[in-house]
């Protein structure tokens, strides 16, 4: 019994292994319960925008460039996540196999899970930079989206008001 009087039933190694497999599924195709990163990246790959001639709405062109950068950075972030969480899942499956019982599993210390910690190294080093970049790109995308909207009425008005000038460049 624990201090609060409730029974404490430790999980079995098979439960930890199942969690590891779940994380591996998250890194890949997903499961019935959750979508996987592969599925999400597949969605990302269908993204594409076409602003046409950049001279008509220059801000649309700027937004398009940022959009491409946003998509690339997100896919890199998701790939980093998938690699890391997949390795953690794999290490959990391996680690769980080394324990014969719930009691042994409860005695596992950080040293026993060294490979698990090592698997997260790359993720820990790079994840902060990725979120910072995504935050910056998000601000940029919002600014350029607003600028594109503000500039949208100019082409027609300016074109007709100054017909002798080049309307395309004025837009």
């Amino acid at each position: 019994m624990s201090e609060d009087g409730a029974s404490t039933i430790s999980v079995q190694p098979a439960d930890v292994a199942a969690f590891g497999q779940f994380l591996q599924a998250c890194a890949g195709e997903g499961s019935d319960a959750v979508p996987g990163i592969t599925q999400i990246i597949g969605l990302m790959e269908t993204l594409g925008i076409n602003p046409g001639d950049s001279a008509v709405i220059p801000n649309a062109d700027a937004l398009t460039n940022t959009f491409v950068e946003v998509c690339r950075t997100l896919m890199e972030a998701l790939t980093l996540f998938a690699k890391g969480i997949g390795e953690v899942g794999g290490q959990l499956v391996t680690a769980a196999g080394a324990y014969a019982s719930a009691e042994e599993l409860a005695q596992a210390d950080v040293g026993d899970l060294g490979a698990l910690l090592a698997a997260t190294d790359e993720f820990m080093k790079e994840s902060g930079g990725k979120t910072a970049t995504l935050g910056e790109l998000t601000r940029k995308l919002a600014e350029e989206g607003a600028a594109a909207e503000q500039g949208q009425t100019e082409p027609a008005a300016q074109t007709v008001a100054t017909p002798a000038a080049n309307p395309v460049n004025q837009a």
Binding site: T8, L23, F81, A95, K130
Partner: peptide
């Protein structure tokens, strides 16, 4: 059923998974 993975190793693993999810 009240079952949970406890111990030092479990805490380290929980912290790692939490960091991934926070990301």
């Amino acid at each position: 059923d009240g079952g949970r993975w406890e111990g030092e190793g479990a805490a380290a693993c929980a912290r790692i998974v939490g960091q991934f999810n926070a990301f």
